[in-house]
Design a protein around this nucleic acid. Sequence first.
RNA 1: UGCCGAGUGGUGUAACGGUAGCACAGCAGACUCUGGAUCUGUUUGUCAUGGUUCGAAUCCAUGCUCGGCAGCCA
Length: 581
Amino acid sequence: MTNANEPTAAGAPADPHSGATDFIRDIVAADAQTGKWGRPITTRFPPEPNGYLHIGHAKSICLNFGIARQFGGVCNLRMDDTNPAKEEVEYVESIIQDVRWLIDGWADSVLAPQVYYASDYFEKLYQYAIELIRMGRAYVCDLTAEQLIEYRGAPDRPGKPSPYRDRGVEENLNLFARMRAGEFPDGARTLRAKIDIGSPNIHMRDPAIYRIRRVDHHRTGSQWTIYPMYDYAHCLSDSIEGITHSICTLEFEVHRPLYEWILAQLQVPQPPPRQIEFARLNLGYTVMSKRKLLQLVDEGLVGGWDDPRMPTVAGLRRRGVPPAAIRTFCARIGVTKYEGLTDIALLEHSIREDLNRRARRVMAVLRPLKMVLVNYPEGQVEEIEAVNNPEDPSAGTRRVPFSRELFIERDDFMEHPPKDFYRLAPGREVRLRYAGVIRCEEAVKNAAGEVVELRCTMDPGSRAGGPTSHRKVKATMHWVSAAHALPAEVRLYDRLFTVPEPDADPQGRDFKTFLNPHSLELLTDCRVEPSLAGASPETYYQFERLGYFCADSRDCQPGKLVFNRTVTLRDSWAKAAAKAM
RNA sequence: UGCCGAGUGGUGUAACGGUAGCACAGCAGACUCUGGAUCUGUUUGUCAUGGUUCGAAUCCAUGCUCGGCAGCCA
């Protein structure tokens, strides 16, 4: 069960999905028991390629692939590409990449080798439609879109039959063929299922199953001028692929009778796939609709679909979130029919937990403050041994240069510290990580009264192996050697929105009203230890005492280091300080 | 007001007629060369009212609240 992508540290938790149970798995388990399909449990993940995948999709991916994995089945990745007006190849490619990245090392073996496309079934779907017409279960309707709305009625208003409802089979066949042949303009006619115009369920009031759209499709080109609607294409695609369990979100619950009706009319393998609905993921302080995410991208409010602040899979990846952390998160939130709002802290916890076991520790100073050790020999350089990962001894150690002039974190010094601040201040002692105990003798200021340099002395006996090396001091601080540190740019990310539900404002204000102006803080004068020289996006780092970081996949280069902060470390001082405000 | 669905601590969930448990968050403490990690303790809950039952979060009834459905989108 272990693999290259999983942490090797002792105590790593087992696959969080392995023993998972929820109401859907209960159903699948019961169905698997009866073996009524006579084939392995088969699920599918069917995104429409009209945007990038987000963490809500990740929930669905974990569910569908997780079930296939757990029950020894397979899961098909299928592009639900029946609406050429909205869909693009860029999205197809990103979806494939994101799914593979997310399940790699976990459920890659249950992913069917080929990617499926609903558009591959257009001809079959067309033939099924002819069958429906022959049975008198579908008809060509000449009503305009506006008329159709009127005729269909409303939730509390009954529908009335289309004047074209009782067209003869031959006429329907002829008109449908001519629709396909491109003889009619967009929207001129539809093919409608003949079900029950009086149904209390609007989706059963003779729904349109084909529309005329003279638009090129990203895969079938100009081959088609009519395209099947979701309700018609989806159930049949499931049937064609031998799906046993068709898992979708709650809003499709009212579509289920239609799903079942279509498969009950046609000569398709029995029993049909079973549709089961679950609640989509809602995460605090972000938005999860592709339409809104697209808006953020199009209006340049973020850097793109993979902006590290985006809840997209690509954004999370670039931010430095490991796929295993996303999977653990998805396992933790569970699967129900209750539509709640998940606390972002749960995601952050899953990320920290994963990264704590996985990330290499290094020292980096974000806001440098110069420190001179006045009793340390000028020109001397030591290589101090530092632990790469205290959670994983096999990660080994490295050597970090130490010298007379250092940079420490500006936030680690206060001239007039409040009572709970126990880092450095004039006259106070702290430990420099791995190096020894130092005492602040003087804070040098510039003309403006700003502290620009600290002059300190080191207790020589407190060095590693020294007689007082185990002295107790209140704080340990990170540092870099001024002459050896590498310059770097660091991007600090915060939540994208200032309110938990930006798209549910009681006053109806637009979600963009709540964009967090401080969601990105750019730090251009950072210093990192020399071992980071060849940092790559594939390596996760913990900058000690600061948080988890990774090299930016777009902008980080050997000569120009750029890091993204994935998530901060838990910080009880920051919390206390914020509370005191 | 039509149809469908959902209500368990602050949040996400478990308990499938038999002691309301877990995780996150919060709080308190221990430990610590990361104010990290780890460990310990702890506050807070079954939407309401009836009924069935020895026993109800669970079954029944009524009510309340919330969500979805009126694209030739998915």
